[in-house]
C-alpha cells in the first residue's frame, strides 16, 4: 500500500509528515523501556525481516497482489514503541534507496503502514491476549488476529486521508468499498505471515517475544509464591 507522490495534496502530506515525525520522536523516548542488550538487536533484525517480507508480494485474486505491512508483527515481537521505530526505518530506506513510496508521501506511508498497523494490531492483540488462555502458545494466534484487523483499518485510514486531501475527485464510498475489499484479503496474508513468524520465535524462546513476556512472568509468580507449600502440584521435571 505504498502511497506514491501525487495521490495526496501538499498540505495533507505535510500534516502526515508532522504526525509521523512527532510519533517517531515520542517512540524514541518510550522505546527505551522496551529495549535492552538482548531486545535491541532483535528489533534491528525484525526491521530487516519486515523489509525482506515486504518484497514478497502474494496474489490476492485476479491481477492484484499485496504484501505484509508488519506493524502487528513488530509490535508483538519487540513492543509497540520499538515497532514504530523499526517500521519507520523500513519505509525510510524503501523511499530513499528503492524508490518505493514517494518521498513527499513518506509521512503518509509511515502513518498508514507503520503507526496504524502498530496501533490497531497491538490493541487487538492485547484484547485477544486478555480473552484467550493465558499461555505463550496462544500469543501467535492473538498476534495474527491483530494483523488481520490492522490491514483493512489501515486501508480505511487511507480513505480518510484521501477524503481530506486527495488530488482527484472520486466517489469516496466507492473508494472505501474497494480499498477495504481488497485489504481484507491482504489482511489474511498478513495474519498468516504474522502467525508463522511469531510462532517460530515463541516456540524456541518465548522470553524474547515482547507480547509473551507477561504470560511467562505470571506463571513464574505462581511457582515462586507457592513453592514451599504446594510444590508437589507444580513439579514437572
Amino acid at each position: 500500500m505504498h502511497v506514491p507522490n501525487g495521490f495526496l495534496d501538499a498540505p495533507t502530506s505535510v500534516a502526515t509528515g508532522v504526525v509521523a515525525t512527532a510519533a517517531v520522536g515520542v517512540a524514541l523516548v518510550k522505546a527505551r523501556k522496551e529495549l535492552d542488550d538482548r531486545t535491541a538487536p532483535m528489533a534491528g533484525l525484525i526491521a530487516a525481516f519486515i523489509f525482506a517480507v515486504q518484497m514478497l508480494n502474494f496474489p490476492v485474486g485476479a491481477g492484484t497482489s499485496g504484501h505484509l505491512m508488519g506493524g502487528a508483527l513488530a509490535a508483538v515481537l519487540v513492543g509497540p514503541w520499538t515497532a514504530v521505530l523499526s517500521t519507520s526505518v523500513v519505509f525510510i530506506v524503501q523511499a530513499l534507496l528503492f524508490a518505493d513510496g514517494g518521498i513527499t508521501a513518506l509521512g503518509t506511508n509511515i502513518v498508514l503502514m507503520g503507526l496504524s498497523t502498530v496501533l490497531v494490531g497491538y490493541l487487538v492483540f492485547l484484547g485477544m491476549r486478555a480473552v484467550l488462555p493465558k499461555r505463550a502458545s496462544f500469543v501467535p494466534l492473538a498476534a495474527a488476529l491483530g494483523a488481520l484487523v490492522s490491514v483493512p483499518v489501515a486501508s480505511l485510514v487511507f480513505v480518510v486521508l484521501y477524503a481530506i486531501g486527495g488530488n482527484a475527485d472520486i466517489d469516496l464510498a466507492a473508494l472505501a468499498t474497494a480499498m477495504v475489499g481488497v485489504h481484507v484479503l491482504i489482511g489474511i496474508g498478513e495474519a498468516v505471515i504474522t502467525y508463522l513468524a511469531v510462532a517460530s520465535i515463541v516456540s524456541v524462546r518465548p522470553d524474547l517475544v515482547h507480547g509473551a513476556r507477561p504470560l511467562l512472568e505470571q506463571r513464574r509468580l505462581v511457582i515462586h509464591d507457592t513453592a514451599p507449600a504446594t510444590s508437589s502440584q507444580e513439579t514437572s521435571a
Binding site: F7, G63, T64, S65, A99, S155, A168, M179, V182, I186
Partner: peptide, 24 residues
C-alpha cells in the same frame, strides 16, 4: 513474488485516480 499491482495501485486504476501519480 507476484508482480501484479498491489491493492492500492489496482484500486487507483479502477477508480481512475492513478493519473495524479507523479514520478518518484
Amino acid at each position: 513474488a507476484a508482480s501484479s499491482p498491489d491493492g492500492l495501485e489496482q484500486v487507483s486504476q479502477t477508480l481512475g485516480f492513478h493519473t495524479t501519480e507523479t514520478d518518484h
